[in-house]
Amino acid sequence: MTQVPSSNGGVEQAAEWLMRRQPAAPAAYCPVDRPAKMRIEDFGAAFDGTEVLRRLNLEICACERLAIIGPASGGKTTFLRSLNRLNDLNPGFSKTGRILLDGKDIYDRAMDVAVLRRRVGMVYAVPIPLPWTIYENIAYGPRMAGVAGRGRLDAIVEGALKSAFLWDEVKDRLADLATNLSGGQQQRMCVARVLALEPEVLLLDEPCSGLDPISTAKIEDALLELKSKYSIVLVTNNTKQAARASDRTAFFLMGELVEVGPTSQVFTNPTHHRTADYITGHFG
């Protein structure tokens, strides 16, 4: 924080006021050199009238890894599922504000939800392989989008599995049931399944919560690699993972965005004491 000259009462008051209000409406914009991919404006969400997210303002930049941390039931997953309108599946869902993808409101009537979900892909907390072969799992999304032809699909499947660092392990058993893969492999297959759609934004909802450290490391490696092509939003309960595997970190608490900034800054010098409490484990 800037040093406030003590002589000037007016400035002091203004500064205090600023400090107090800053956490409620943080300036949460991208570093200037990167264009915003998604822009969340005054976004709020509720289920059956119960508010889950409040007046959220945030930008997701192109080619960055944004980590979202915070205690449970802080609205992280709801936020993530709002970004590709998966919350629409819940009949009690309602929202306020806007979410823009490349400047267009994703909740606009003109937005084709299926296309949106291909552009903004999602990986879930537990791997959910559909009960088919590995190949069919990966090819499912492209097929839904109308891609046909064995040759094209083969290429897409191979490319996606390579991007998720899984190709070498499964290239000889693409016709095996995906459910027979190990947990870590299943989760990387789920990443590959999303990558097969060549999304622009990749959402990951605690993707490593059920995995061992080695599998976790593999996924984190993949994320680093993928960052050059995609915007990545990673919800995680593991603060260490956020510190390792993100460029910026946002801290969510009880439906509000408390602060967001470069990961190194959030972890070493957080603006808000609640962030500090959470990171250091003093959270009650």
Binding site: N84, L89, A114, R117, M122, Y124, L130, Y140, A145, L197
Partner: peptide
Amino acid sequence: VPKSYRDVSYGLGSTRWQLVTRV
């Protein structure tokens, strides 16, 4: 049929009819 399959299918950009027929 597990509810999560619906999430996955919608998440991969399927329409409702595609979800119904293929999953």
